[in-house]
Amino acid sequence: MLIRHAGDLTDNDVTPHGLYLRRREFMTGAIALGTGLAACAPDDVAAAPLKAAKSRYTTSEKLTPLKDITGYNNFYEFGVDKSDPARNAGKLKTRPWTVKVDGACARPGTYNIEDVLKAAPLQERIYRLRCVEGWSMVIPWIGIPLADILKRYQPTSKAKYVAFETLLRPSEMPGQRRAVLPWPYREGLRMDEAMHPLAFMAVGLYGQTLLNQNGAPMRLVTPWKYGFKSIKSITRISFVETQPRTAWNLSAPDEYGFYSNVNPAVDHPRWSQASERRIGEFIRRKTLPFNGYGEVAGLYAGMDLRKFF
């Protein structure tokens, strides 16, 4: 991983974690075969350890197990079943990775991800994630505040919204071969939402780099909004003047609004949003307004949240 400056990398940083865990197997294989790199084909070793400082954004709630976070995903680019992404995301190559920054900013351009992530040191934040489908998780993310990234490109006064796009690469994202959603996946935030301290750009979770099914190499995390707002595998950031179109809103405008703030009082047309099942729990729990992140309420003062759902 090249998240930090290349000069201070150690062996530990450049050895994928899974490979490290299998070091004995590797040695045995090497001895047995004499020449043996064949013994450690790195197919299941996509996650590498990441160091991050703890932040004040945490919770005493029980973390969702890693296997559920990496095995139960909505990432339609890799298939519509929850287990499809874990199965199909391995083919995606996340290096080299560039991010196109355009629109109303002083420093547009195409940047390497290593450069984008220089914006701030990594920190860990434990957030709740509430899916629009009525389930939730607690995830220890690693990343940097979105505001720190956006500020580097110096958005101008014309930048009222920021729009994001996911990679479009059907050869490595088999779900994109069918028009289940209008590809590429698109999301957006109002500028003040994007600059809110809770908005986060994640590059890892549970102390390791993101696996592809979780949106490697970098994905948005907006914990007060339904999970689909947290766009994955971002390749484009655009500063725009008008409210951008978003993938789920294009697909079903009466069901998925631009804001999509977690709101137990506003039901999805087809199901209630009053409660949710925390993954691993039996009894449903009550859903909290803004997913319990009441500090964002000021962003929506005076807005009718039934109309702007």
Binding site: T64, K67, D68, G71, Y72, K82, S83, W135, R277, I279, G280, F282
Partner: peptide
């Protein structure tokens, strides 16, 4: 599948 934890993270659904 239910007992073998093979119904995914949300077995009830």
């Amino acid at each position: 599948r239910l007992l073998g934890d093979d119904l995914g993270a949300n077995p009830i659904e």
